[in-house]
Computed example of a mutant assay.
Amino acid sequence: MTAASTQLKRPLWQTLVMLTLGFWLSGSLILEWVIMPSLYLSGMMTQAGFATAGYLIFWNFNRIELLSAAVVLTGVLVLVSTNFAATNWRRGAVVLSLLLLAVSLIDTYFLTPQMCATGLQLNLFESVAEIPATMNQLHAGYWLLEAVKLVAGGTLIGWCWQHQG
């Protein structure tokens, strides 16, 4: 019984990385596949206050993403420094965690402010006729980065799950 319970133990940082990634990626999926489509289908994107509301939602979520990316990177660096697994896993895990941090930095400091500025209605007397072409390009970049985040985060969770401490 003691041998079985010893085999199931994982390093604390490995568990923290997996829990943080699970929280972060599930939050992203809920935001992107439940909250934003609901707002879009309800017609909120055509209202004048949508850019402000979107900025408030994403401002908060982007800060959570930055914190999550920092915890994941820190956890991976700790696991690498403690000789947690094979060398090829170490390099890949560090690269993926740096990629996750880069995605969250780009989302926080470039894409979100740009999308909100593009969607901001400055003339109160004009109605919103259509979404600007620039917004569609920014959305495409955002979705590409989200796909990268989900693939990198999912791969990192898989690697952490496979490598017992």
Rank of each mutant, 00 (worst) to 15 (best):
C160S: 15
R90T: 12
V72N: 01
G43Q: 08
T46V: 05
Q114N: 09
N136V: 12
V80C: 15
V94P: 06
V72D: 02
F84V: 08
L138F: 02
L98W: 01
M115C: 03
G49I: 14
E65C: 01
M115E: 05
F125Q: 07
G165S: 15
T15D: 12
M1K: 10
N123V: 12
E146V: 03
S26P: 04
S42K: 01
L73T: 10
M18W: 05
A51L: 03
L98T: 01
E32S: 06
V128D: 03
Y109M: 11
T87W: 08
L31M: 06
L56A: 15
V94F: 11
L145I: 04
Q162M: 10
K149F: 00
N62Q: 01
L56T: 11
Q162V: 13
T52L: 07
A51M: 06
Q47N: 09
L124D: 07
S42E: 01
M36H: 14
L21S: 00
L12W: 10
R90P: 09
G165T: 15
L21T: 05
E126T: 13
G27K: 02
W13P: 15
L99Y: 06
V94D: 08
N123W: 15
L29R: 01
L120N: 04
F50K: 08
W24E: 00
E32V: 00
V151Q: 03
G92C: 14
G54M: 11
L101K: 01
S26T: 04
L100M: 14
M115D: 00
M36I: 13
S42T: 03
M44W: 03
S26F: 10
L25A: 03
M45R: 13
T82S: 10
M45W: 13
Q47A: 08
S26D: 02
L99D: 00
V94T: 13
F23T: 05
N60P: 01
N123T: 14
Q164R: 15
L99S: 10
V78H: 14
F110V: 09
V151A: 08
G153L: 01
L16F: 12
G92K: 07
P132T: 06
V80N: 12
S68K: 02
Q7V: 06
G43F: 02
T155A: 15
